[in-house]
Nucleic acid binder design. Sequence first.
DNA 1: ATTTACAATATGA
DNA 2: TCATATTGTAAAT
Length: 171
Amino acid sequence: MKIKSNNHQPLIRLPLATAAGAFIAEYSDHGLASLDFPSDANPPPGSMAVPPEIRRWHSLTTRAVKTALAGKSPAELPPLDLTRGTAFQQTVWRELQKIPGGQTLSYGQIAAALGRPSAARAVGGACGANPVPLLVPCHRVLAAGGRPGGFSGGMAWKRRLLAAEGVPLPG
DNA sequence: ATTTACAATATGA
DNA sequence: TCATATTGTAAAT
């Protein structure tokens, strides 16, 4: 995932070890700001002091990510810092969190749920801008007719996450 | 049945 | 103005 050039706020990066690899979680003062998929080029976490509150959030994030990887719904999420998104994007992300595990919607259905039935394309843009995959389940959104659509972290992840929830993609 | 092509649409950089 | 993780329709394989 690309590093945002927008670093108007110092973020604390922490490695998040799972059976699927080491994710990178980034925290701001408000909560979890972004979650990156495992990569071979994981930068070492900054050796700055980690406030106790953030360690507590990281504990919740770790548990939630592992639960999501297992195809189940996390019982508790850390606070999410979505202030980097626009108002429309935040509305979309909130809507995504309402999708129960194992269920998929289309971009058009998300748009309709927001009262903008013709904003499917814009919803796709908001999904692509989602900084917190897995916890904001952008992988449960397909294109119309069951077509796969896209995924920031790569289609392999989208297939894997959906398969864990019992929704295999064709192919 | 599957692949292209294209217009219309909302949002963001 | 241009790009996009869309959608629906149409035409050509």
